[in-house]
């Protein structure tokens, strides 16, 4: 019958960074034809309790591109099965299933992009908006021997945050890392960034 004439997509894999999960595959090459793809998933609950149940991806039913953002489908820290099939007119391919189930706790967490600035004597930090999963651990210190490192936990509201009031003539450095509670992991720290406050150092 015509169902399996269409070749199935191949080489499925998930690229995941900072809790954004992208399912990619090798497209079905049919010159002059537009092939569409549909993605389905099942969490560990479905595979354990209702293995016949596959759920249509929220973003990728009959999509043209050989990729699918499944971030809104992978919403628990358990293994997920993912599968794709091709469609051309009335013909559909067999399903291709990801070889290994994907768990979001394997996502790559990159050091956050940090922008620091001075507002008068105020040390201000602005953090990259990485979405609702992310908290930021910010460390800042005065650049001098034996300086104490101060820590602050920030959720990213997308607005600059006042970190400290600086003293004239001193330099201050900042670094940050992300923390994702849903997977209980944090990123590496960003490279320290420093700013200096002009003016005479205050007499001791």
């Amino acid at each position: 019958d015509g169902v399996a004439i269409l070749p199935a997509p191949s080489n499925l894999s998930v690229h995941s960074a900072n809790m954004k999960h992208l399912l990619v595959w090798s497209p079905v090459a049919l010159p002059g034809e537009t092939v569409y793809y549909s993605v389905q998933y099942q969490g560990e609950y479905e595979s354990l309790y209702r293995s016949h149940v596959w759920i249509p991806s929220s973003l990728c039913s009959l999509t043209e591109r050989p990729q699918c953002d499944v971030s809104d489908d992978i919403t628990a820290t358990v293994p997920y099965n993912l599968r794709v099939r091709a469609t051309l007119g009335s013909r559909t391919s067999a399903w291709s299933t990801l070889k290994q189930p994907f768990n979001r706790n394997s996502t790559v967490l990159t050091p956050p992009v940090v922008a620091i600035s001075k507002d008068g004597f105020h040390l201000v930090i602005e953090l990259e908006d990485l979405g609702p999963h992310f908290e930021f651990l910010v460390a800042y210190w005065r650049r001098e021997p034996g300086a104490k490192e101060h820590l602050k936990v920030l959720r990213n509201e997308g607005v600059p945050v006042h970190l400290a009031t600086m003293e004239p003539g001193a330099a201050y450095c900042v670094k940050a890392q992300t923390f994702v509670k849903a997977i209980q992991r944090h990123s590496a720290f960003s490279q320290p960034e420093c700013v200096e406050v002009r003016g005479e150092a205050l007499p001791l």
Partner: peptide, 17 residues
């Protein structure tokens, strides 16, 4: 309903975790 099914799946898999 696929939309409701997704939400129930999300809750079920979170409960499994």
């Amino acid at each position: 309903d696929p939309h409701i099914l997704r939400r129930i799946s999300s809750i079920a898999n979170s409960f499994l975790y």
